[in-house]
Nucleic acid binder design. Structure first.
Length: 753
DNA sequence: GGGTCTCGAGTTTTT
DNA sequence: CTCGAGACCC
């Protein structure tokens, strides 16, 4: 890359001297190129040192890529000293930036400079501890909280939530997380929800504000605006305002008060706990950094000398707290790069409206040339999103150098979104028609779907690799196998574990064999003398006898990784696993588990087995082991979230994004500090919040489709058939399905059942 | 196009 | 249990 290769739009960004600016970077518009070029300009002509140009991304991967390109470019231009500085400089994720600020100013922040960062189950254990303490405490102190606890104690959880997590604990901990990430002050929230009266007053205020927007002139609403009237019991007196506006259930106001009080207490307790142990999670890193900068003039001063430019990537995915961080840093140049249309991190409290608001205030530099996709793909994107967003869509120009689209660039696949079998058959067709597997990528919404597609593709003999996903590591078969193996080794009473273990690849007994073994219990006593009819089973059993009992005698005295090493060395586990079609992934998972075990040498096999079981119950997530393989000629399967920033020759969008139904009894808009419950009747506050939540969720579902479609370079296949979801139906309709499809859009029929 | 009934599924994405 | 989609009916 050199500056002469930049488009006029890109050059405008690099040349701009505005102190703060927004870059509206459409998909494939070369935003990383521009960020790198801007950085280079600052360093090579702006007299800044790499240490002074803070470059912030969301993912480690993006940060690494950014750094790689910056360093390479500085080297190429002969700035080798600067390249070296950039290598260790502040090109990093937002969370590492927070961490850096806190460690460098630990004295001012009142932190141990060696503080720990916690995630995963260590973190949730701490949340739970805080929660239990604060519940116990609040039952005594708050009548509202105690009424809520009584109420929830009688509520049964449907679905398969862990029995460990009561309805109460789930509800409170989730609300706590939301409030924590919203950048609010706990004392203020507590005040707003101090009792039933306060809650009704707050709801009334917000509802009337909301109603004002729809009916600005309504006199009834003016009436209702009087907060004192509201507090006297709007629900009873029905002030002649539209019913939905006044239908607050006082009982629900009471329980909402109790719930928020519990969440705030948990939040404060959790902060205290983290401080006490000097162990913080990501949310805390953010808010500690914000607090430090906002409240300490000295730190602010130091930072403003340190940071001469602040470049923020993927700014549409910043949450309110992160915006505060960006705003609190006093840098002479700030540049936010993002695309509203690609905001897909709502679940992490990303609020793309903040980006839009900022774009009203700061000069906006658009990057509208797409250097990735051919014209057919861009046209399809235009049609679908023009249909949804109208003038709101930022249309993209095809690059002058774009390749001509293939004959059949856009395909609508008439498979049902549930029919993964049919979809796999169609992928098979693509391969048979000459598309190489590695040119094809399936972009799924969730991990469950990824694994389903993977299995179907196996059945059709299509090579594939699943990237990144995180099907719960601890529920994967091999992890289960290992958990059972450990338990069978350390707990002689546990016949269930032993039975599963016998059937697992560690031993390899057939189900019949296991059943006959189970005839005589306990297994630890009967097994040594067991004889089986089936000769394969018998030989598997003999092999098992030879290594299992000696290991069992030692197991209690060994640490878990020693036990695991012995297990792997002596059982036929790896040989059996190697025959599995998903062997690579499975081995990676086993390796990952082993490395977890090696990290904790103090754990006994018993502890570790307990931990696996506990975590399985909690359905906790741990990333799977990495298995990226660029060389393999295999269809790639990944989530849309994982695909962000990447591009693929042919993209298949196999599922059509059904919004999971929301059974929550708590609705909230943390940005406004609003919470409502519906434990008794449905209150209008609850309905308002739930509806707005749904609207936002639906809007994000569309943006997900946008991200997926704009990953394609040459060819795009969209599953829209069968019992299509509303979203899929709209996509099909926008593309003229079935009778008015423009040139280049084709139908591929699902094969018969 | 809208109202009612039945049946199935059951909160996902990740720094 | 409870919601919502889809079927079925008018």
């Amino acid at each position: 890359m050199s500056l002469t290769d930049l488009t006029p739009e890109q050059l405008a960004v690099v040349d701009a001297t505005a102190p703060s600016m927004i870059v509206r970077a459409s998909a494939g518009s070369g935003k990383t190129t521009v960020l790198v070029a801007k950085y280079i300009r600052y360093v090579t002509e702006g007299g800044m040192s790499p240490a002074e140009v803070w470059t912030v991304t969301f993912t480690r991967k993006a940060a690494a890529e950014m750094k790689r390109r910056i360093v390479a470019e500085l080297d190429r231009l002969g700035f080798s000293a600067a390249a070296q500085q950039a290598e260790t400089g502040p090109i990093q994720t937002l969370h590492s930036a927070c961490e850096r600020i806190l460690r460098e100013n630990s004295l001012a922040a009142g932190l141990d400079p060696e503080f720990e960062i916690i995630e995963g189950h260590v973190r949730s254990a701490m949340v739970r501890e805080a929660l239990r303490n604060s519940v116990a405490d609040m039952i005594e102190r708050s009548p509202e909280a105690s009424r809520l606890v009584d109420h929830l104690a009688g509520v049964r959880q449907y679905g398969f939530g862990s029995p460990l997590d009561s309805a109460l604990e789930q509800t409170v901990s989730r609300l706590t997380e939301k409030l924590r990430a919203a950048g609010l002050r706990s004392q203020e929230v507590a005040l707003d929800y101090a009792d039933e009266e306060a809650v009704v007053r707050l709801w009334c205020q917000e509802m009337t504000a909301e109603a004002r927007q729809s009916w600005p002139e309504s006199p009834e609403i003016n009436d209702a605006l009087s907060a004192s009237k509201a507090a006297q019991g709007l629900a009873e007196r029905r002030l002649g305002v539209p019913e939905w506006l006044s239908s607050f259930s006082l009982e629900d106001a009471d329980m909402t008060s109790g719930l928020v009080q519990l969440a705030v207490a948990t939040w404060e307790r959790l902060e205290a706990l983290m401080m006490e142990r000097q162990a913080f999670d990501f949310t805390s890193l953010e808010s500690l950094a914000v607090r430090l900068i906002e409240q300490d003039a000295g730190v602010r001063e130091r930072l403003s000398c340190q940071v001469r430019a602040l470049l923020v990537d993927e700014a549409q995915d910043l949450n309110p707290n992160q915006y505060r961080l960006i705003d609190s840093i006093d840098a002479p140049f700030k540049m936010l790069v993002g695309d509203f249309q690609q905001s897909i991190y709502r679940f992490r409290d990303a609020d793309p409206r903040l980006f839009l608001e900022r774009a009203e205030q700061w000069p906006v530099f658009p990057l509208s040339v797409n250097h990735r996709s051919n014209k057919a793909v861009l046209d399809a994107v235009d049609q679908v999103f023009g249909f949804w967003w109208g003038e709101g869509l930022n249309r993209m120009e095809p690059s002058l150098r774009a390749e001509a689209p293939p004959v059949q660039a856009i395909e609508l696949w008439t498979v049902d979104h549930k029919d993964t079998e049919g979809l796999a058959a169609l992928v098979r067709q693509l391969v048979d028609e000459g598309h190489t597997p590695k040119s094809i990528t399936l972009l799924c919404r969730d991990n469950k779907a990824m694994n389903d597609h993977a299995r179907r593709l196996s059945r059709h003999g299509v090579p594939h690799q699943v990237i990144g996903g995180s099907e719960t590591l601890y529920t994967r078969m091999e992890v289960r196998d290992i958990g059972n193996a450990l338990r069978a080794l350390v707990d002689q009473e546990d016949d269930d574990a032993m039975a599963c273990f016998l059937h697992s690849p560690f031993v390899g007994l057939s189900l019949d064999g296991v059943v006959s073994a189970l005839a005589d219990r306990p297994l630890s006593r009967s097994l040594p003398t067991l004889a089986l009819e089936n000769e394969f089973d018998q030989s598997a059993l003999d092999k098992f006898q030879s290594w299992f009992w000696p290991l069992q005698r030692r197991a209690a005295r060994l640490s878990v990784w020693e036990v695991l090493s012995a297990l792997f060395a002596e059982s036929p586990y790896f040989e059996s696993l190697a025959r599995d079609p998903e062997a690579t992934q499975r081995l990676a998972n086993v390796r990952k588990l082993l490395s977890l075990a090696i990290d904790r040498p103090e754990l006994s096999a018993h502890d570790f087995a307990d931990q696996i079981r506990e975590i399985q119950k909690l359905r906790h997530r741990e990333g799977l082991g990495e298995t990226m393989d660029d060389e393999a000629d295999a269809v790639t399967i990944m989530t849309i979230h994982g695909s962000k920033g990447l591009e693929f020759e042919t993209v298949v969008v196999p599922d059509t994004f059904k919004r999971p139904q929301n059974r929550d009894r708590v609705a909230s808009d943390p940005r406004r500090g609003l919470v409502a419950t519906r434990y008794s009747a449905k209150s209008s506050a609850f309905q308002m919040l739930q509806e707005s939540d749904r609207r936002q969720e639906d809007a994000e579902a569309k943006r997900l489709v946008y991200v997926a479609m704009t990953r394609a370079r040459k060819k795009l296949c969209l599953a829209v058939g069968g019992s299509a979801t509303p979203l899929a139906a709209a996509i099909a309709k926008a593309l003229g399905f079935p009778d008015h499809m423009p040139k280049g859009v084709h139908i591929r029929e699902a094969p018969g059942p």
